[in-house]
Simulated assay, not measured.
Amino acid sequence: MMDGAVAPLLAGVTVVEISRGVAAAYAGRLLSTLGAETVLLEPPDGNPLRREPPFLPPAREASALFAFLAAGKKSVTCDFESPAGRAGLSTLLAAADVFIHDLRADECARLEVDERTVRARYPKLIDVSVLPFGAVGPKAGWQAEEINLIHASGEGFLLPNGLAAELFPDRPPLKVYGHFAEYQGGVVAALGALSALIGRQQGDAESVDVSVQDAALAVGAFALQRFGDGSLEHRRTRSFKYGGVLQCADGYVELLTLEERQWQGLIELMGRPGWMLDPVLADSLERSRRGAEINRAIRAWALEQQTADVVARAQALGVPMAKYASPAEVLSDAHERARELFQPVEIPGGGSLPLLSAPFHVDGAALRLKAGPPRLGEHQHLLTASRTRNQPLVAAEAS
């Protein structure tokens, strides 16, 4: 453990995970990084995320997505279609604190892990379901991919916007790169599990039902509020009155000036040009009305700036500005190094590579990954160990 790291918050907590999608897998990853022992139950041919691109060199057999989502977890293979596999699942659940999964209702019933059965058989087990549209309701049986979810949450309708919409006005609605909505679902599922763990101290466990659509809807809360007022945002009008994404001489930055002091800092940053000192612009409402005019001047100025220099000067003046960095720049940046956000781990088929541990600190210190992603079935012994550990409990109940 590196200096400044904290003891695992969830030490002693066991999580069993069955995941096919990113949301459930990310929930398990977050709990694992917080210190829980997360056991990933995989079918004999492996979790489908193992086969998701992009793949890592040199062999291009290891999925980068799976490597990130499975880091620190343990792998046990289980054929749920066989009696032995279902018995193995039952054995692991009897020894677990949290069960995270993205099984459909019919699958839960077949495996006897539906809410009613879980509450009866495992009264201390927290059951967390993470599905595209939740486990209950008219859309509970619907399947969806990321592109469906980002648009079902309303966010896709508003993309691209700002500078991107101006540069490419004919582009259709797009999705955020990667798995934006599913990661939101994973965060909500992890928070639900943590809340239920706290609540369990006062009584029995709870079942948590997470809809990825609902989780992603929360990201667009402001757009929803405006819709309630009768205003429908559109990607071509959704932007800051001025600022936002700016093109510089060697890249892009993002600028926000939401407060008066930030506007005053921007005046200093731009060298106090005469047009910014116009008394009329002292009124924030007037600045909003003249947003397009102001932005034209800011963008013309930005084209002559170097990103590293202008960001450093902006931050010194209290102006919220940051550079759009490449992946290589993120890994080498002093900020990320100081916060110890990345940690080298061994990835089967990929070698030792830096991996994001967690995008947050706990008590001011970085979290540490226990290991890289597991090999398929690497921890099969846990199934035998769980059976042995549970035998006295079964005997005691029988007596």
Rank of each mutant, 00 (worst) to 15 (best):
Q305Y: 10
A385Q: 15
F222Y: 07
N295M: 09
A135F: 03
A109S: 06
K175G: 02
P160K: 07
S32M: 00
L93G: 08
V345F: 01
Q262K: 07
E329I: 04
L281V: 07
E340Q: 15
V130L: 04
E259I: 03
F157M: 14
E81N: 13
R104W: 01
D106Q: 08
A316E: 15
A84W: 05
A27L: 01
Q306F: 13
L269N: 13
A140T: 00
P359I: 03
T237A: 14
A215V: 02
P320I: 13
L92Y: 08
V219R: 12
L331D: 09
L93Q: 09
A308E: 15
E286V: 12
R171G: 08
R296V: 12
A36T: 00
F180R: 05
P169Q: 13
L131Q: 12
A223N: 14
S326P: 03
M270Y: 11
L93Y: 07
R235I: 03
T38E: 01
T384I: 06
V128D: 00
H335K: 09
L277A: 14
G72V: 00
R235M: 05
R104I: 02
D333P: 02
L383N: 07
G291S: 06
D209E: 04
T388Q: 13
Y242A: 03
V245I: 15
A334Y: 03
T91K: 12
R299C: 14
I347S: 06
Q213L: 10
L89T: 09
G349D: 06
T91E: 15
H361N: 06
W142P: 01
L277V: 01
A144L: 07
E233T: 13
K241L: 05
L34E: 01
F66T: 05
P172D: 12
G162K: 15
L10A: 05
G154C: 15
R235A: 05
F133M: 06
D204M: 04
A297L: 15
D250F: 11
V13S: 00
N161M: 11
I294E: 11
R171P: 02
A365N: 08
P273M: 14
E112V: 03
D204P: 01
R313P: 08
T117H: 04
R20Y: 03
G228D: 09
V253Y: 10
D106I: 03
Q143E: 15
L69A: 07
F240K: 07
V330H: 05
G351S: 07
L266W: 10
L367Y: 02
Y252W: 12
K74C: 04
V253C: 13
A70I: 12
G21D: 08
L355Y: 09
A87D: 12
D283G: 04
G35Y: 00
E233C: 11
P374K: 05
L167I: 02
R29P: 01
E329D: 11
L89R: 09
V187M: 15
G186S: 12
I347G: 10
M1I: 04
D114Y: 05
Y242F: 15
G88R: 08
L56H: 08
S195Y: 02
L149K: 09
G230D: 02
D79K: 07
Y177N: 11
G243N: 09
P43Q: 05
E52I: 06
S326Q: 06
G243D: 08
A96D: 04
H335N: 04
T14E: 00
L30Y: 00
R368W: 07
A165S: 11
